[in-house]
Structure formats: C-alpha cells, structure tokens
Design a binder for these strands. Sequence first.
DNA 1: CGTGTAAGGAATTCTGACACG
DNA 2: CGTGTAAGGAATTCTGACACG
Lengths: 106, 106
Amino acid sequence: MGIEEPYKDKKVITIGVVRELTGLSDRQIRYYEERKLIFPVRSKGGSRKYSFSDIEQLMLIADKIEDGVQTHEIRQELAREIKHHKADVRSMIQGQLNAQFGTRRP
Amino acid sequence: MGIEEPYKDKKVITIGVVRELTGLSDRQIRYYEERKLIFPVRSKGGSRKYSFSDIEQLMLIADKIEDGVQTHEIRQELAREIKHHKADVRSMIQGQLNAQFGTRRP
DNA sequence: CGTGTAAGGAATTCTGACACG
DNA sequence: CGTGTAAGGAATTCTGACACG
C-alpha cells in the first residue's frame, strides 16, 4: 500500500472547470460548500480551487441529492466515512508495528 | 505496465495556478507556448488550461533555459523524445504480440 | 430545502506592442 | 533571444439577496 496519484488531492481547479466536469451549476457547487460537504481552498484573490477528489466527491453528492437525500444527511455519512478511514489508518499502522516488532506479549 | 495517474494529463489548470506552481511569469509560460514547447488547451472563453504534466514539462524547460539552452534546441530535444517514445510503444506492442502468438518464424 | 437569477464589483486572463539587449 | 511592462477589453468569479416551493 504505497503513495499513489500525487495529483488527485491538489486543489488547483477553478469552479468553471468543475462546472464543466461535473455538469453541476456554480450555484450548486457553492451551496454544497455552504452545507459543509466540500472544502475548496481559496486563491489570493478569493477564487475557489478544487481537486480531482473534490470533483469525484461532488458527483457522489449529486447522485445522492438526486435520490432525495438531504445535505445534512450526506454530511453525516461523510463524517462516518472519515471516522472509519481514521480507524483503518490506525489499524494499518498497528499492523505495521506488529510486523516490525512482533505482537506485544508479556 | 498498466494505466496510472489518470489525472496527470487532464488539462484543467489555469495559468494563474501554473504561475504559482512553477514560479514562472505568465509572460514566460505564454512565450514557451509560442515557441511550441508546451500545448495548453483553450476554454470556451479563450483561457489556457494546463495539465500537471505540462507543469512538470515547464519546470524542465525553465531549467534548460537557465542553462542557456535556446528554445529551438529544447524543441528539437522534445521532438527526439517523442520519437523515442513512439518507438518504445511500438516495440512494447510487438512484444505483447509475440507473447500472445509466438515469434513469427516461417 | 435546493436552486435559478439579476446586480455590481473585483480578480483573472487575453492580445498586440514597445522596450531592452 | 527571452522577458518585463502598460493598455484596453473580455471572460471569470465573488457575495448577498430575492424568488419559488
């Protein structure tokens, strides 16, 4: 499990390109940010910059919205995913430690 | 040898971000395009869009310029690289064909 | 709740040209 | 040759608000 796709998470894409790539309106894209579903960074001048991950995330969000899921529900799902992801990272690190030093057994 | 880094070649980055990421001026970036060293695509409105590959390419170009290499020389080097790359692809495909069907031997 | 829209302003980018060397 | 710059215009993005439902 190595480091891959170094570009996927770099926030370098303007909202216009995101609009084209996702098919969403800027209004929608900005609204999902307002509802804490997506977190672009800002350029010096104040314009939003998104990553490819953000674009994928937006397409997932759009699917759920279409299915009638409300933004606050989506936000909760996201929180759960992050929690699980953190747990995964924790257990992976634990696994590496065990592999290196053996399982602790007093 | 599979398909990797699906984002590396997507032309989605505006010149302002390229300027920040490379440290070059827009003048320089546009000039290298004029000299056929880099090939951004255009948005509907006419603004340039670059890929991460383009950014890496620009940094290589900048290094060579600093070393006193002229743009037309760099362009020739690029042409050679493309030629070699095409030869590599050709021999790789040939290798796959041989692996699949055996070397032709009448 | 989620989205469209008109409004006004600010930041971004574009081209062609002049300058220096 | 490679790059800076001032000029004027066009495309892009921003925010806050009103509207509908």
